[in-house]
């Protein structure tokens, strides 16, 4: 199996991006955005994770099979979240009297 050589400047660029995003996280946390604080923090965290997975963990240069398995990991996490949230979101749907509140 051959490995593509990743230029050092690519690693430096990713490293700088991670640092900048970390600083952004800290700065944004000090600004009052209400519920958007959470959304911004999570978005930045996801971007950082993707950068680490693609470049530092070499998934970008890996085979399709490796990418499939990485994708499966995230897909399974999505299953967990979607099904749990389907419970939480639909708990109030039942119309009229319920057995616990009649």
């Amino acid at each position: 199996m051959t490995h593509q050589v990743v230029p050092v400047r690519a690693y430096v660029a990713v490293f700088l991006a991670l640092i900048i995003l970390t600083i952004t996280t800290v700065v944004v946390s000090r600004i009052e955005l209400g519920e958007y604080n959470f959304i911004v923090a999570i978005t930045i965290a996801v971007i950082k994770a993707v950068l680490v997975i693609l470049f530092f963990m070499h998934v970008k240069q890996s085979s399709s099979m490796t990418k499939l398995f990485v994708g499966a990991g995230f897909f399974w996490m999505a299953i967990l979240l979607v099904f749990i949230l389907s419970d939480y979101f639909s708990r109030g749907w039942l119309p009229g009297a319920t057995w616990w509140r009649s």
Binding site: F83, S86, D87, Y88, F89, S90, R91, W93, L94
Partner: peptide
């Protein structure tokens, strides 16, 4: 658990 989730 929500009845609807339970049905699924």
């Amino acid at each position: 658990q929500s009845m609807y989730a339970s049905m699924v």
